[in-house]
Simulated assay, not measured.
Amino acid sequence: MTANILEVKGLKKYFPFKKGLLGKAMEYVRAVDGVDFHIGYGETLGLVGESGCGKSTTGRTIMRLLEPTEGEIFFEGQNITRFNKKQLRQVYKHMQLIFQDPFASLNPRKAVGDAVDEVLLVHGMKDGVKRRERVEELFDMVGLRKEDMDKYPHEFSGGQRQRVVIARALAVNPKLLICDEPVSALDVSIQAQIINLLMELKERLKLSYLFISHDLRVVRHISDRVAVMYLGKIVEMAPAEDLFREPLHPYSKALLSVIPVLKPGQKRKKLVLEGEVPNPVNPPTGCRFSTRCKYATKQCSEIEPPIKLVGNRHFVACHLC
């Protein structure tokens, strides 16, 4: 068995942006543009970056909800990049996605217990009694009562709805959860409860996570390693404590500089990025961050830096490192 539950190699996802007279795509939004990473068994990889950097598209492309333009996706050693729908159904027994908005991902006309029950039925559990018992078990696992099974999504708070979505994702005993901003729509106090639940479930069920978020405080709390994404590319990846203690890429430094300091009297110098994020249809040559980086040289604007190992599992794509 491979040491990694998930490996992504050269993943690209382009969206056609402009059509010619004959319907031929002339330009593309390069949402994900050559991404490589892996997730080990029992590991949480945090994927962070500004809105629009491509992190959510990465998660959806891995799940094959979006078809990759290029690259390969390996799940437990199997190349699932070109799997058909029947083959993907088998993969989805072991890999599930948790969406950002729990209300949008639940059918408002269906009781939440039925929403979880439906997953079990689709994946082959025909016995209605056993399905009911399994749904009760899942509700208990995520901190809900069995009486809640007959309620509808609008009768729950945001945090409770996210617990339902987590229960639905766990219904088929997955090994990997792709969590796409799972707490960003929740109040701060509720965020902590859901994060603690995810961490408890990880230990209890031996799960692996790809945790996608723009909230660096949350990512630091839950992640073993962190990958920083900018304009479709990963610019830095390292163990969480190493990255937060000593970020190397100028973009990572700027992101971390705006995290609030909790200790009284302690201050952190904020690094303000100038300029707008470049157009993903026509990204800059060389380093994509060079147009906003105060340290950029001529080399940075002409030659794209490869991502390279600079320490213990610490990778960075920067000519200055």
Rank of each mutant, 00 (worst) to 15 (best):
E236M: 08
R217Q: 13
A238W: 02
R89Y: 01
G128A: 14
E133D: 11
K146E: 01
T285P: 05
R134D: 08
A296I: 07
L177G: 01
F289G: 07
L66Y: 15
R131P: 12
G54M: 13
V316E: 10
L66K: 08
Y209K: 14
V235Q: 10
R109M: 11
V32T: 09
N107Y: 05
F83N: 04
K19G: 01
V91K: 03
V29K: 00
V310D: 05
V183I: 12
V164E: 01
L198G: 07
L207Q: 05
Q299S: 05
T2V: 10
F211W: 07
K308L: 12
F156A: 03
Q100G: 10
R30P: 04
L198M: 15
A104L: 06
D180G: 08
R82D: 11
I73G: 04
K55H: 10
E302S: 14
K175R: 15
I178V: 15
R145L: 13
R163C: 12
A254C: 11
R163M: 12
S290A: 15
I178Q: 09
K175P: 06
K18A: 14
G40T: 00
P239R: 10
V129L: 09
Q299Y: 06
V172P: 02
A171I: 06
Y41N: 12
F211V: 06
A296Y: 06
G158D: 07
K298G: 00
E302A: 13
Q162E: 13
N4Y: 13
R109Q: 13
D224F: 02
F75C: 05
F211K: 05
Y230I: 02
R204T: 14
E136W: 04
V116F: 11
L255T: 03
K85P: 00
E67H: 14
G143E: 07
C293Q: 05
C293A: 10
D33M: 11
E304L: 04
K308D: 01
V226D: 06
K146F: 00
A25F: 08
S208I: 09
H314D: 08
V261P: 10
K93G: 11
T58K: 08
R292S: 10
I5T: 07
V112R: 00
T2N: 13
D180A: 11
T285D: 09
A111G: 07
R82M: 01
S56F: 09
K206A: 14
L97R: 00
V261C: 14
P278G: 08
L216G: 04
K19A: 14
E76I: 04
E67P: 13
V135T: 11
L210R: 02
V48F: 01
S257Q: 02
L231V: 06
L45F: 02
S184I: 10
C318Y: 10
I5G: 03
D36M: 04
V277I: 15
G265F: 12
I73S: 08
N196Q: 09
I212G: 04
Y14C: 13
R132Q: 15
G52T: 02
E67V: 11
V116Q: 09
Y230R: 01
K202T: 03
V29L: 15
V116P: 07
R245P: 03
A171K: 00
A104D: 07
R145S: 15
P305C: 08
K24C: 05
M63G: 10
A169F: 06
S184T: 10
H249E: 13
